[in-house]
Design a protein around this nucleic acid. Structure first.
Lengths: 206, 206, 206, 206
DNA sequence: TATGAATGAGTATTCATTCAT
DNA sequence: TATGAATGAATACTCATTCAT
């Protein structure tokens, strides 16, 4: 989140199998370093070393480590959104609350499974919100919430205000962040998720 | 949020007025640099230069820039909590919802006024949650929420669960974060705060 | 003009039309890069890219970029000397001074037209005088001056000393260099060339 | 002689004796490397090593090696001009030609004594004419020529044209360059200088 | 105590050159 | 022959930290 421009685009897209393998190794190495040793351990030379390629090759495809992080995040986000969408598509002969509960559970698991990586990306990488802007996330989020709502047997209220929708997304984001990064010994995570789904369902349907 | 240890304590506490002035100048310089140019511009030499003291003097009192940031944050947090508490102490011959609305409004303003600094601290400084652990914040938050509740004319429910309390704090945190750092053109901030207070009040009192 | 040896010879001479075309493309690319972006932008990879051939092909014919520059310079010098000689061959039913004036004008135009390239070669390329040694230039120059003199109606003095001949070449070189690379707003270029021809003629014939 | 901007200014001027010594050592090291091993051997790390200081210290005072070269050249030029001026001030109960001869001899010796350094600066360093622009040199040159003329017993012509003055400076520059960097086995250097002085005197006084 | 010059390990990045395909 | 992906030595530059004054 610094003001100067950072180049987050790849220099060229690998065509041959050999290059694709190199780029993939670089991205995996980036992930491994971030998870094991954090952002400050992430240097171009180290990425190349862990990936088993030369620094030269890294710079062939990326203008710097920031672009490697960006590629990794985009990869990850694509797979996340894919997972979420496909799960939503599954039939829920269910109440809205149950559908919502299923979905926030999914989301929680995704973040929980990648806790360390998400933590580093959100709290240490200064340009992570330039890779995937917040409103992209929010838009995807809305689409998914709506899709999920449509799938459920109960209709949601037509007069739902933008403020309520906004509250739903910030509430969900805040709660998941809390559960993953600031868990309390006094609360049961599943019950918190129950409550979360219950409240959201109430806002949407009552 | 790296794994190795960072020394966040001051080396010694300044006794003389001159030393106090130096330490103060250092902390102010730290804040100014973070606000104007971000964390990556924060170097010990630069802090000293802006503060008008020598690097040697900085190292006399702090083991490194991280400790300067820590001192600054602790200062800031003290003043924040103080403000919040004193505001809560004011009489609210008022509903719980109104008290809550007043209070989230206050909190929002505090963050909004220090937007850039909070942004840098939360999203760029890797050790900010080591300075003030999340549960410290949560504890203070609970105290305040409870105190506020007690001050209001209406009693809150006695059977409020820890999960609901937890949800209140994560919801508030998430919503304020969203309003400040990811505002939507489609929502009115004050209305979102209205809704937030309304929902929290409902959870506490119904 | 460094002390270690630089290989300025081509690795092999292209026989087939396709190879000749590649080599030609490489030399043209070299010239274009030098003119547009200077010597520091001249890399083997860039030459190959601009030429539309692979680096591998470049190294097939040249041991390095220095040899490409050398080939380009030799090409250029050949054409320059050719032009000068053929122009001299033209009849000048003329005074020696007029013949000289015509000739320095020619020379000036040649340099002026290739100003940027000559500038880069002379002032930036450290090995340019190893490509065509100074005395080769001087010798050609003498030949031309003498030929030109012979063509003119007036005879030059027989007792012309080597020192005067030397002075003629350094004076011409210095003046053309000055006019092209350090022009003065206070002098008219054509008049300077007039004077130059006038003085040289005087030295040769009086 | 590249188009982009190069920073040729010092970062700060050393005040303390210790810093002055460092800066001096850096400049001497720069000269030594240029003379012994040429411009391509000039790296910031190498300058620091030869100077016996750390790279950090070099960067404390200079933004890069270019600025070190610039400082060295300015030093050198100052001393050159000083020498030339003081020599001109000496009385010449002498003809203009003799004064001129004395002076071009001086100039020749200065260049000859620093042959290798001047060679590297003029033909290898791409930004040398940005350090001391050509017209600064020419202006100084004119001043000196005029001063020298005034000192001589004979008056120079009042109607001397700008073109003749220009020719004098380019002729002198070209001839000195030739004598130092492209000497001919067939000419005697002193005699060439004799002729040079003789011709210039003729242009100025006849 | 205060100063700030000096240090040098560490990081980003380029580019000549090779060699498997 | 031609290709262009891969290599890695080499270089510029920064910044936390020390220590002589």
């Amino acid at each position: 989140m610094t003001t100067e421009q950072i180049d987050l685009k790849m220099r060229k897209i690998p065509r041959q199998a050999r290059s694709k393998a190199s780029v993939d190794a670089i991205i995996q190495a980036c992930r491994r370093i971030l998870v094991k040793r954090g952002y400050e351990a992430l240097t171009t030379n180290e990425i190349a070393r862990v990936a088993g390629v030369s620094v030269g090759s890294l710079y062939e495809y990326f203008p710097g480590k920031e672009a490697v992080v960006a590629a990794m995040v985009r990869d990850m986000a694509d797979r996340y959104f894919q997972t979420l969408k496909s799960e939503i598509t599954a039939k829920h002969n269910n109440s809205y609350e149950n559908a919502m509960r299923h979905w926030v559970g999914l989301l929680f698991n995704l973040v929980q499974e990648n806790k360390r990586l998400v933590q580093v990306l959100v709290f240490d990488v200064p340009y992570s919100f330039k890779i995937i802007p917040f409103d992209t996330i929010t838009t995807e989020f809305f689409n998914i919430v709506m899709k999920g709502a449509a799938r459920s047997q109960n209709q949601y209220k037509l007069e739902v205000t933008p403020e309520i929708l906004y509250l739903i997304s910030t509430t969900t984001a805040g709660t998941l962040t809390g559960l993953v990064f600031a868990p309390s010994p006094y609360v049961d995570k599943e019950r918190v998720l129950d409550q979360l789904a219950n409240k959201i369902a109430a806002w949407m349907t009552q």
